[in-house]
Amino acid sequence: MKQIYLDNAATTRMRPEALEAMMPHLSEAYGNASSIYPLGEEAASALAEARRTVAQAINAQDREVLFTSGGSESDNWALIATAEAYESKGRHIVTSAIEHHAILHTAEYLEKRGFEITYLPVDEDGRVSPTDLEAAMRPDTILVSIMFANNEIGTIEPIAELAKVAHDHGALFHTDAVQAFGHIPIDVKEMGIDLLSASAHKVYGPKGTGLLYIRKGVKTKAFIHGGRQERGLRAGTENVAGIVGFASATELALAEQEEEAARLAKLRDYAIGRIEREIPYSRLNGHRTERLPNNVNFSFEFIEGEGMLLQLAFKGISASSGSACTSGSLDPSHVLLAIGLPHEIAHGSLRLTLGRETTRDDIDFAIDSLKGTIDNLRAMSPLYEDFLKAHKQAS
Rank of each mutant, 00 (worst) to 15 (best):
L352Y: 13
L350C: 02
T358K: 00
S318Q: 08
E276T: 04
Y270F: 04
G355L: 02
A346K: 00
V296G: 07
A271F: 06
R277C: 09
L341C: 04
N285W: 14
G340D: 05
G322P: 04
L354D: 05
I279C: 07
R268F: 00
H287C: 06
R274Y: 06
A313W: 03
I345H: 00
M308R: 04
Q257G: 05
I275A: 07
L354C: 03
N294T: 08
E357A: 06
L350S: 06
E357H: 13
E290T: 11
S299V: 14
S318E: 13
F300L: 03
R288Q: 09
L310H: 09
L310F: 15
A319S: 08
G316N: 06
S323N: 14
L352Q: 10
E304L: 09
T326A: 13
T289N: 13
G328K: 12
F302V: 09
L312K: 03
P293S: 08
E258I: 05
P342V: 08
I363P: 02
P280R: 03
Q311A: 12
S333F: 01
S327H: 13
G305Y: 04
K315S: 13
L267H: 01
F300A: 02
S327F: 12
R274N: 02
Q257E: 09
I363D: 03
Y270Q: 06
N294M: 12
E344W: 09
S329T: 08
A265K: 11
S329F: 09
D362A: 02
G340H: 12
P280S: 05
R351A: 12
S327E: 08
I272G: 07
L352I: 00
I303N: 01
H347I: 14
L341N: 13
A261G: 15
I279Q: 08
I303S: 01
G328S: 11
E278C: 09
L312D: 02
L284V: 00
L264I: 08
C325N: 12
G286I: 05
N297Y: 09
L267M: 05
I317G: 01
G305R: 01
L309A: 01
M308L: 15
Q257R: 14
R274F: 10
S282L: 03
R288M: 11
S323I: 04
T289W: 13
M308H: 12
T359G: 01
F302E: 00
D362Q: 04
T358S: 03
L336W: 02
I345A: 03
Q257F: 00
V296L: 09
D269Y: 01
S329P: 12
G340A: 02
L352A: 07
S323F: 14
R291G: 09
G273N: 05
L292V: 00
R360V: 11
